[in-house]
Amino acid sequence: MTVIELRAATKSYPGGVHALRGVDLRVGQGELVAIVGPSGSGKSTLLNLIGTLDRPTSGTVRVAGHDVGALSDSRLAALRARHIGFVFQHFHLSPGRDAVDNVADGLLYAGVPLKERRSRARVALERVRLGHRLSHRPSELSGGEKQRVAIARALVGEPDLLLADEPTGALDTASGEVVMQLVHELHARGTTICVITHDHEIAASLPRRIRFRDGAVVSDSRSGEAAS
């Protein structure tokens, strides 16, 4: 089943910036995809389109069978709340609140009651091996731990699709490895995942790699059918 489908998707910004110039792309359920390419090549733009944070200038983007261009703002919000999880390079945690509350926010807009949000948040934090940091605030966590909290927040709602924009970009190698290990675990459980990365080793370790340059796909390779 196709989870992500882009057809001739373009994205232009005022001033003649063409961030995406007609991208065709399909990602099936359960795939783990690396998106690579030089800076400014349109990787984040692509991820925003897939994550329905943005709409294409032309062409179509379908996520989980929904045509993103045809959905209202509130429907898109519901799609993100229930089916998509995001992880960003800069974590975006709420500074004054502890790990449990930060992770529980991942369920807030899906209409889950507070008690259940908190208990599921604890489970998610256990899964990213932060069971011993439940009541720590972001300022009391290392960069790698912060990113694991952000991953817990993204996965607490059991999304079908996880989108990560340079999740290891702000981390040292060891922390980055832990994060990628979690990504592989999620993949093993059937989650569809797209990861933007500048790290060649990480890219090489993923089953599928899509390479971008100047807003277009220049290569799309799989390392053996067995991987997906």
């Binding site: 703002d73 919000a77 519901a78 993100r80 709340a81 229930r82 960003f88 975006h92 991942g106 807009y109």
Partner: peptide
């Protein structure tokens, strides 16, 4: 932006 990403409507 984060809240919008995790599903907040306008």
């Amino acid at each position: 932006g984060l809240r919008r990403a995790i599903g907040a409507t306008r």
